[in-house]
Each structure stands twice: as structure tokens, then as C-alpha cells.
Amino acid sequence: MSHHIVEVKNLQHVYPDGTIAIKDVSFRITHGESVAIIGANGAGKSSLLQHLNGCLEATSGEVMIGDTRLSKGTLPDIRRTVGMVFQNPDDQLFMPTVFEDVAFGPLNLGLSGLEVELRVKKALERVGAGHLCTKPPYLLSGGEKKRVAIATVLAMSPDILVMDEPTSGLDPYARRQLMSLLRDFQHTKIFTSHDLDMVLDLCPRTIILYEGVVMADGPTRDIFLNDALLAACRLEKPFTMQGCPICNKSADTKKL
């Protein structure tokens, strides 16, 4: 049995005000896969992600993590298995110092003081934020906050890493740094993003959501070459696949 498998079957979610965020979504993500969930604003991406570790309860359908069905009883185990990094790091970093924030998860797992310190140190070093240990979160830059937010999740040793818009709000250098960091992770990775160049770079597989329904699920490159599908889902090709606007030269898609 592997905890690294995510299976969503006929998921539906209706918000209390009657808005149908997810109509009918099914997919299976296997061990070590890196998958992007893309779609226009309001397509249901963030709502879908929140179902993967039980932050939202499905109206109907089910979510399986490995062989475990997500339910109230299995939540603690599933939350340890599925590490969720939120879009806004200010929502994720709530403790007074970086150290305490990263230690929050391991302490909740009931680990001892020494083990917690070891995990915090390792997680912060992994994201290149060891030097920020004693700093309060409000003194960090956007890129630093994002890296520390990832460390808070890594410290819990999750099998699956779920990230909502990981590169949003980052400058090009911080974005590049974060991408090379994510590339090195061996976890099963699930991203939502509007940064389609990042998707092309990091995710061999892409799922397109449109109005709460899966419109496409397949190899990222094939999906991005399908102009009709992208237009129907209110999406555009990544910049690296578009022609140069200055010299009017079309992109060499064979190289991608």
C-alpha cells in the first residue's frame, strides 16, 4: 500500500450560498507524479485542493489517499500525509518566530524536543532559510515567506505536497529559486497555478478544470499545443510556447 496515491472519485462541492464550485471531478495521481491543476478564475482549483486534506468537506463523491478514504476519523493521518502550502504565506505563518512556526506541525505530531529541533533545522536548510530561524514572519520578504511556508509543511514529512499558486507574487529570481527547489522534491506534487511556464517546467501531467468539471487530463505538452481546448477553457499558451512579439518568430515547440 502506498500513501502517495491520490484518488478523487465523482467529487462535488456546493457552497452554502448555492454556488457549485465542483460539479463532477475524478482523477488518480500516482506515486511521485508532479501534476498541475490549471483553469481560469473560479474554475474550482482552490476548492478542489482544499478537499485533498479535508479543509473542505465534499457534498458528494470521495477522496482516497493511498487506501484510506478521507473522513473525520482518518483526518489526522491524512493531514500528516498531505502537506498543504497555501497561496498567501501570511495565512500559513501565524507563530511569533520562524522556528516556532516550523515546529508547530512536528509538535502537534507529538515529537520530542530534540527531534522537533532536528526536523525544523533540516526543513529550513532544505529551503535555504536556516538563517531566518529567529526572525518574526512579518520581517520576511515575500520570497522568504514562501520558502518558510514550504518548510512548515516539509517539517511534517508529508508524502504528498499540495501547493496553491506557489509562484504567485514572487519576483523572477525568487520564482526561479522556488522552481528549482520544487524540482528537487521527490514527493507526489500537486500544484494549482496561473504560471503556465512553471507548469510546463515542473509538471509532466496537467489537469484542466473549467466550471467545476475536468476538461482535459494528460501530458502537459499535448494540452498546451491544443489551441482550441485552451481557448474553450479561457486559457492561453505559456509564454515560452508563444511566438516572439518583436521579431514575429514562432516558438520552436519541438524543443519544449
Partner: peptide
């Protein structure tokens, strides 16, 4: 809304109503 987000983030990291101090 932010309070709700923070609570969700806490739940996602195993919070069950008790703070463990280091």
C-alpha cells in the same frame, strides 16, 4: 476571512486545540 484561513492552516498541520510550547 483571514481568521478562517489561519484556522485552516493550523488544522492542516495537525492542530487539535492545544498549543505545544518549545
Amino acid at each position: 476571512q483571514r481568521a478562517e484561513h489561519i484556522h485552516t492552516a493550523m488544522l492542516a498541520r495537525g492542530f487539535i486545540g492545544r498549543f505545544h510550547a518549545h
